[in-house]
């Protein structure tokens, strides 16, 4: 799958106004989204796929060739994303919660008012993003992407087994709008406060949301418009997608300036 993107930076003062404008544009209320992003870095090349070069009998299908090239090419940073809720912030881990509630003869039932965060039950999604395609063929950023669902809970062990080491994590907070096939995500990045927490493994608990520090201290937001296409090699569909994006850009011209991102700033390769 490929994704086509346009970005715009939104000053903090404009945030509320833009939210309203986008609500009007999409004629629907936004969905609030909070995500944990764990950044992983590949430390060894994946097991090489047997590529028997030479011999015309053994011509490989183009997909296999592409896959081989991808796997044996550069190493990438990948992200593991887990959706969280506002309730999860500043809450105690489940183990402590149950320990406390057994004292009070109370059990954490479904829909219990108690605030507890169960890291073992956290859902995860692996997100791979390639470096954007070079060349100014279109005026939108285009890159190869793939998502995969991971098992719940501890994500470190499988990732390590696959040759990835944990680097850091951050939180993305924002609102999602859907406009036809375009997903508009108006978000900001929150970093964890500097505390005594060991930075290496992912956190088992989340600090209170108000303690989180925005990465952009000026309070700015980023507006990201994405169209995902199934087949990036189909020029018609790619053209359609970029036309949709450019149409939106034109529509939002008076509010924000959506533009292509710098290719190298979205480089996910490990150097």
């Amino acid at each position: 799958m490929h994704e086509l993107l346009l970005f715009a930076s939104v000053p903090g003062q404009q945030h509320h106004e833009l939210l309203q404008q986008l609500t009007g544009l999409t004629a629907a209320q936004p969905t609030h989204r909070l995500e944990r992003h764990l950044v992983f870095k590949a430390y060894r090349r994946p097991g090489s796929v047997n590529t028997r070069i030479g011999g015309s009998q053994d011509l490989q299908a183009p997909e296999i060739q592409r896959l081989t090239k991808m796997l044996n090419g550069a190493m990438f940073y990948t992200q593991v994303v887990g959706p969280v809720t506002e309730k999860d912030f500043g809450s105690v881990p489940l183990s402590q919660f149950t320990a406390r509630s057994t004292v009070n003869d109370k059990r954490p039932a479904e829909g219990d008012q108690g605030n507890w965060y169960d890291f073992e039950d956290q859902r995860w999604r692996l997100e791979f993003r390639d470096i954007p395609e070079p060349g100014a063929r279109t005026t939108v950023t285009t890159r190869l992407m793939a998502n995969a669902t991971l098992p719940r809970g501890d994500v470190l062990t499988p990732m390590n087994a696959w040759g990835y080491s944990f680097v850091t994590e951050y939180i993305m907070e924002g609102d999602v709008f859907i406009h036809n096939d375009i997903v508009l995500f108006l978000y900001r990045v929150l970093t964890f406060p500097a505390d005594s927490h060991d930075p290496q493994p992912p956190r088992q608990t989340l600090p209170a949301l108000r303690e989180m520090i925005p990465l952009d201290r000026s309070g700015g937001y980023v507006l990201q418009a994405v169209v995902i296409v199934t087949d990036g090699s189909n020029p018609e569909i790619m053209k359609l997608a970029s036309q949709r994006l450019l149409g939106l850009k034109e529509q939002l011209k008076s509010a924000v300036k959506l533009e292509q991102a710098d290719r190298l700033s979205l480089d996910t390769r490990v150097k």
Partner: peptide, 8 residues
Amino acid sequence: KQTPPPLS
């Protein structure tokens, strides 16, 4: 309001 499926 749901995330749309990829364009095809």
